[in-house]
Design a protein around this nucleic acid. Structure first.
Lengths: 167, 167
DNA sequence: TTAAACTTTCAATAATTATTGAAAGTTTAT
DNA sequence: ATAAACTTTCAATAATTATTGAAAGTTTAA
């Protein structure tokens, strides 16, 4: 496998993995491309590399900026905008975890809290609903907390936490 | 909010959350319904509650069984099949984590490993590709290990790990 | 066996989601 | 002010994914 093959394989795999961290294919591919680029890329370059339209590129770049994963770069003497992504995987993981929590997990936690707080009328089915949604609420909330806390450890939680917990 | 409202809210919220844990809406809704049911449900009952077709119900129940989340129940004297889901959230989390890892994360880890193992020809771009995909490989692998290990602790890791880590 | 009760399959269709491309908008240089 | 260089917007379209429903398949009881 040479450079170009490896690059294509990486970008497309990362793209199809987008769903795993909750973003669409084009968005994930743009991020992947920037992630292995040695310099900031212009919209033209992104379009050309990924063979996607200008509109698509524009929209997805904006979303990545929204997520806090990509930033615009001003390059002196250049008229067009250039883009870079966070290059540190740790920081990347932190940002993604935080955003997903905010966008998706928190709203669900709220619903689970509401549902598990309905009045207990003493019937079996109501009790089951309360019991099960409460369990789910606790699990979701705790898992979310944990991921955020883990991911926020400034030093390499990877090795440290692993050693502590997993042995 | 009364029982029926709460039930509908829970089932539909859990359904739309399906994407978060990588399954489709109908599948997630069926699981949610079984999760709060006080008794095993037949295909008829699932169809009626969720207003989905027989074919859809059949296919998605089978997928849930594939995932190891739902099991068929034989009820003496009954001709049709009944279904239940794992009721313990801990066990549920464990099963889901294991399956997602196997189905989605492992294949990506493999690609990252392959890509990061290409021959270093000394060019800047190749070095960057190797460096970045290696970092991603390590992160992904470690995070995957961690989740699996955490989720596999038999006793309630929830409280224990939380107390240890988060304080 | 046969037939009723039930489940699965899958081609057709519907619903959803992503992508395009061109017009409208913005910024910068002169 | 004007125009070139560039970006954004969004209605139309394409691609993908989910759902239906009816025919085919299976199991059970008599």
């Amino acid at each position: 496998m040479n450079y170009d093959e490896a690059k294509i394989k990486f970008v497309s795999t990362w793209g199809s993995l987008g769903s795993l961290w909750g973003i669409n294919k084009a968005m994930a591919q743009i991020q992947a491309l920037l992630f292995i680029s040695t310099k900031p890329l212009s919209m033209e370059e992104v379009m050309a590399e990924l063979k996607i339209s200008r509109g698509n590129t524009s929209m997805n770049l904006r979303q990545l900026i929204d997520w806090g994963i990509v930033t615009k770069e001003i390059i002196p003497g250049e008229r067009k905008e250039f883009f870079t992504t966070e290059k540190d995987v740790q920081e990347l993981a932190r940002t993604i975890a935080k955003e997903r929590s905010r966008r998706e997990i928190q709203p669900v936690i709220k619903v689970l809290k509401d549902v598990s707080s309905i009045k207990d009328d003493g019937t079996k089915k109501t009790r089951e609903l309360i019991k099960q949604t409460k369990a789910l609420h606790d699990l979701t909330e705790t898992a979310d907390d944990m991921i955020n806390k883990l991911v926020n450890q400034k030093q390499n939680w990877i090795t440290k936490s692993l050693l502590k917990l997993i042995k």
